[in-house]
Amino acid sequence: MSATLSRLDAGEVTEFINREGDLADKHQYGEWLALWNPERALYLIPMEWQQTGPSRHVAVIRDNYARLGDRIRRLQSGNAHMQDPPSLLCRVISLLEVTDGPEDQSATARSKFVCMEARPDREVLWGGEVIHTLGRRHDGHLEMWTKEVRLVNVARPMQALGFIM
């Protein structure tokens, strides 16, 4: 069994996480979408991590790859009013911790972030913990399997969320 990704490549994982966040800040959706593994993709902003109880809880976003594609196409259509103009974004990612992933050649990365969103009528501060699972493609590049964003303010009344968190 080969060494796990985390032990080998914490620096590479860090670079990937930073690039992924930067692409989202810049609304570079095509490149951002290309980071995903289509079969495994799950982009999740859950509410239940603050909840108790056995049942599945309504999420803010729960996208598989097909719905992610729909989301991106909508944002690129020019008709998504809530991103006209696109939000100006600045996120800071910190406290990154890389551990072994669920499979060989995979890693789980936990990080904290704050993201300042400026819109014509308001500024919104988003923040929380992000849990990525990443794998390695045959060509050697890393890819995203899942991205779960645990917003600290998810239970508060939320402003429209139009960008990629």
Binding site: V60, I61, D70, A80, H81, D84, D121, A160, L161
Partner: peptide
């Protein structure tokens, strides 16, 4: 639940545009 999440959450394809227009 999936239809709700696609259309009507704060990031939903329908509601988020309503929110912008109402504001």
């Amino acid at each position: 639940l999936s239809r709700h999440e696609a259309a009507y959450g704060p990031a939903g394809f329908i509601l988020s545009d309503d929110l912008e227009i109402m504001a």
